[in-house]
Design a protein around this nucleic acid. Structure first.
Lengths: 148, 148
DNA sequence: CGCAGTAAGTCCAGATTCCAGACTGACCGC
DNA sequence: GCGGTCAGTCTGGAATCTGGACTTACTGCG
């Protein structure tokens, strides 16, 4: 009775999306990158519903992307900081921003422009770490290791 | 009566996420990059509910990320292809994959390893197009143009 | 002192969305 | 005819999202 078996790919992209593949999660992370570490400020800057943001922050903390740090004892108050894994999401954020800059900017151009430490306006580019050449969609294929 | 005004940032990241910021949207795009252009095959490979995938494909087409092409006349059949804007999402996909490879790979390592056209195993890296140096989280700041 | 505000959430009820599986309609191959 | 493919749509229940009110514990300000 079976037709072609349904077997979703094992895939790092899918796994990553299980952690950060939701609008408010990524926007919360954006805020932390921009220096906002506090709940109420994130609410204001992202526009997320309080409930949803609270839930997202919880999952991000348990996923090891953010760290919840107490900065005030008596009225217990917490800040969110990026873990190392969280900081490694920087390239993802950067590429999302680049795409929006290119395809969704209005008349006024991108709402936020970044400057790289070299002094130039940042134009992010993805290259192969080995040959330093840009990685185009067609320039990759499945790696077939010389199996032992 | 108002307290601090709630004004979500104008932000290319948020805008981008309005288009592709959902698990199944990105996984559909992944499939197209991997060469699957057809609905049923996407269903099988992503595990998405048929309904949801149909809805996502519709929004991606209207957003100009995918193009719906008829490849069969009589039982009308369609394939999905990347537009130029869609192809430009490649870096996003790549960085999501990289993160999953690093932080969510199990014992067996990443489920899919790519080879760059230079012959090396692909290690994607984000650099500044101007100085070719890696872009670290702390190496950027707001660009303050010399206003005229 | 009392009022306003800030902060980090929680609680709620209603709206929306998601999901799995069944179904459709037009074909194809045996 | 029987089964299979393909691109969806339909369905009803489950899960999730949403905005707003509420809570608790402070810190000013006059």
């Amino acid at each position: 009775m079976t037709t072609a078996a349904a077997r979703p790919r094992e895939c790092s992209i899918a796994r990553t999306l299980d952690v950060v593949g939701e609008k408010w999660a990524l926007l919360a992370i954006r805020e932390v990158f921009l220096g906002n570490h506090r709940f109420d400020e994130m609410i204001r800057r992202t526009g997320a519903p309080r409930d949803t943001l609270a839930a997202r922050l919880r999952t991000l903390v348990t996923a090891g992307v953010l760290e919840r740090r107490q900065y005030c004892e008596h009225p217990a108050r917490f800040e969110y900081h990026l873990t190392e894994a969280g900081r490694e999401l920087h390239p993802v954020i950067l590429m999302l921003m680049r795409w929006g800059d290119r395809y969704l900017a209005g008349e006024d151009g991108p709402p936020l422009i970044l400057e790289h430490s070299c002094g130039h306006r940042l134009e992010a580019e993805v290259v192969c770490a080995a040959c330093h050449q840009p990685v185009a969609p067609g320039s990759t294929r499945r790696w077939s290791p010389a199996r032992s």
